[in-house]
């Protein structure tokens, strides 16, 4: 059991030391969500990442939080994060302006199965802010449209006012080779679109269950019910991908906070197959 020889191959010399990035633009998406467009300020020219990965964002003097990257992996010269102002750090972050700086550590974690999904129908299911971590995968897959079968985006959010990336959704919906369905929980008469939870859209969504890869991101309860609908249609638990969220302090597997069963969300995830998560999702307080 004792390891006599230890091999040292650091991939990052100081994984806990952030890099300083400058805010190029702040875009308010809805009343409580916003997008930061960042550029490196230390001579670095790009920030390569894979769709689905996340960064640790540090607001000077306030603290650090994990946030998924929501920009285009093919445009690594810009770093884009969309988040909701819910906690101390994200609230402070929402008050930052163009020209302010922020600390970044990353990118961390596993990524969406962009390659594995080739030659398959791809169904994206996003709930609320869950559209943000899926957007890089949408960019990647749309950029190589010919490699995929049908592409379907099912997006559920609380109300029409909560809709994220409004203009982009309209552009995607206007394309003949993408199917975009948006549904909200609550709407007044001005809303002409779907009302109901996003899981309602799955039974009739146009995809071939035997040849489908589904990418799901949203709160755990939404992902649980979404998975049930996909399984009912015959999609395999290994073709169903989810992204998980837990408290994180280090993002590199040392702090222990993000453990879920035998997994560390930060390094084994955040993207997992439903097969990996199935049992854990059925347990309380794990």
């Amino acid at each position: 059991m004792l390891e006599q020889e230890l091999v040292f191959e650091p991939t990052v010399a100081e994984p806990m030391l952030p890099e300083v990035f400058r805010i190029q633009r702040v875009k308010h998406e809805s009343y409580d969500t916003f997008t930061l467009i960042l550029e490196p300020s230390n001579g670095r020219e790009s920030f390569p990442f894979k769709a689905g990965q996340f960064n640790m964002l540090y607001v000077y003097g306030v603290g650090e939080v994990p946030i998924s990257i929501s920009g285009d992996p093919n445009q690594p010269e810009m770093l884009v994060h969309t988040t909701r102002a819910v906690g101390t750090v994200t609230k402070a972050m929402s008050e930052l302006k163009r020209g302010d700086v922020i600390g970044i550590r990353g990118p961390f974690g596993s990524s969406w199965p962009i390659q594995e999904a080739e030659h398959h129908d791809v169904v994206f299911v996003a709930g609320g802010i869950g559209l943000a971590p899926l957007r890089p995968a949408l960019y990647e897959i749309i950029a190589r449209r010919e490699k995929y079968g049908r592409i379907v985006l099912l997006y559920g959010t609380r109300s029409p006012d909560d809709i994220l990336y409004h203009d982009e959704l309209e552009q995607w919906r206007a394309r003949f080779d993408l199917e975009v369905y948006v549904t909200v929980d609550y709407a007044d008469k001005s809303w002409r679109g779907n009302v109901g939870v996003v899981t309602n859209l799955i039974p009739k969504a146009p995809f071939d269950p035997q040849h489908t890869v589904a990418l799901v991101c949203g709160p755990e309860v939404m992902m649980r019910f979404t998975a049930i609908e996909f399984l009912k249609r015959g999609v395999s638990p290994t073709s169903l991908y989810l992204t998980m969220e837990r408290n994180m302090k280090c993002a590199i597997g040392f702090c222990g906070h993000c453990q879920l069963g035998g997994y560390f969300i930060c390094k084994d995830g955040p993207v997992f197959t439903y097969e990996q998560m199935q049992t854990l999702l059925s347990l309380w307080e794990v």
Binding site: M1, L2, F8, P10, T11, A13, E14, I252, F254
Partner: peptide, 23 residues
């Protein structure tokens, strides 16, 4: 405790990242 040290070696020095303080 020797075994405990070997276990912490795996935590801090055997993954993709190394903990500089521990190492």
């Amino acid at each position: 405790d020797l075994h405990a040290i070997a276990i912490q070696d795996k935590v801090f020095m055997n993954g993709d990242y190394l903990d500089p303080t521990y190492k």
